[in-house]
Design a protein around this nucleic acid. Structure first.
Lengths: 112, 112
DNA sequence: CTCATATATTCTACAAAATAAAATATATAG
DNA sequence: CTATATATTTTATTTTGTAGAATATATGAG
């Protein structure tokens, strides 16, 4: 068995955003989703660096988009989580969840 | 408002273990909890390095224990998550959860 | 006593992840 | 053909994650 892998915290955030955005996940859209849903502002450079790493690890794939017919328009790159990415994501979440379940009911809750 | 903070992935794992162990959280116990519940083996050095950082950030406190009356026994240091630690933990979890809810039902699930 | 041994924590060094700011690329409108 | 609006890449640095060696300290055996 290869060495057990766990995702970094921001890697999980990015992958979660890809799941949410489904077929429309590219740079600024991902930034917006993270900003809106996770209440977190991230620089675009930080995002792309992480996406590149995830791609190199085989956890996301990329599809080249068309340039949109509006002013300003380099072609977009759309990202998608792979099956292996989903697997690692679930494993990382489970690790946290399993440690937290059975914990005395206090300030930190997994649900609600 | 001070800069928004999010915990690292392993920091969350360690804090979750502290919650689980309540008043009995010291070195090897924490290692065991992570090993058992998160199915993850971590070196003791890695753990203490992270605990030190969490302490410096005010996310855990330490209480000095007695040496137990068994062979081999340097005094233990018991760790406990602070209110601020719980706050940051909840915030980090919420960020992930909020991105995942509403996601098409697929391979990655928050519950079950 | 003192030494072997069993815990326990700390130190050291390095790898990986996170992050922002600046640079570059490329499309279209005028 | 140039100004401008996206979009992605590059560069540099800080923070986290990680293991292994070193150190500390308690007790049991003799």
């Amino acid at each position: 068995m290869g060495k057990q892998k766990f995702l970094g915290e921001f890697e999980m955030i990015v992958l979660a955003a890809l799941l949410r955005l489904d077929d429309d996940a590219y740079g600024s859209r991902i930034i917006d989703a993270i900003d809106e849903h996770a209440d977190r502002s991230v620089s675009i450079g930080a995002l792309y660096a992480t996406l590149k790493r995830l791609e190199q690890k085989g956890l996301v794939t990329v599809r080249q988009g068309e340039a949109t017919p509006v002013r300003g328009g380099r072609a977009k790159r759309y990202f998608k989580i792979t099956a292996e990415g989903q697997r690692q994501m679930q494993r990382s979440l489970n690790a946290l969840r399993n440690l937290l379940v059975g914990t005395p009911v206090g300030a930190v809750r997994w649900v609600s």
